[in-house]
């Protein structure tokens, strides 16, 4: 049987889907909506920096970032192909999607560590 990378991509999709579901809504609610609208005060820089100073928090954040990016890349790959009927360019689209995820993952890793 030919070995392919696809099962691992589906695994990342699935893991990223769970991470995104459990963690992203509350983060975007707080930092993207309630704080900018002034409903809640922004926390102090010192407080948020203190959270990030914990290496476990940074590590968890990086794992979440990588998983969510691969989840999104996988879904965007197949959705764009179905939506625009461009499945014949699958290899190019896959390179663009996962490539974008890898760029984001490296950016996150360089930022956090």
């Amino acid at each position: 049987m030919k070995r392919t990378i696809e099962p691992y991509l589906w695994l990342l999709f699935s893991g990223g889907g769970v991470a995104a579901a459990l963690l992203l809504p509350v983060l975007v609610l707080l930092f993207g909506v309630l704080m900018p609208l002034g409903v809640i005060d922004w926390p102090t820089v010192a407080h948020l920096r203190a959270l990030l100073d914990n290496v476990l928090v940074r590590l968890a954040l990086l794992v979440v970032i990588v998983l969510c990016l691969f989840h999104a890349a996988h879904r965007i790959r197949f959705t764009s192909e179905e939506l625009f009927g461009i499945a014949r360019y699958d290899s190019l689209i896959a390179v663009l999607c996962y490539g974008g995820a890898i760029v984001g993952a490296v950016t996150g890793a360089l930022l956090l560590f």
């Binding site: 995104a20 992203l24 983060l27 975007v28 930092f31 993207g32 954040l61 970032i65 969510c68 990016l69 989840h71 999104a72 890349a73 996988h74 879904r75 965007i76 959705t79 974008g100 984001g104 950016t107 996150g108 930022l111």
Partner: peptide, 14 residues
């Protein structure tokens, strides 16, 4: 298409 906004949220957090 929620995946596009998932990707955006990660960018925003970065």
């Amino acid at each position: 298409l929620t995946s596009v906004l998932v990707a955006w949220t990660v960018v925003f957090l970065l």
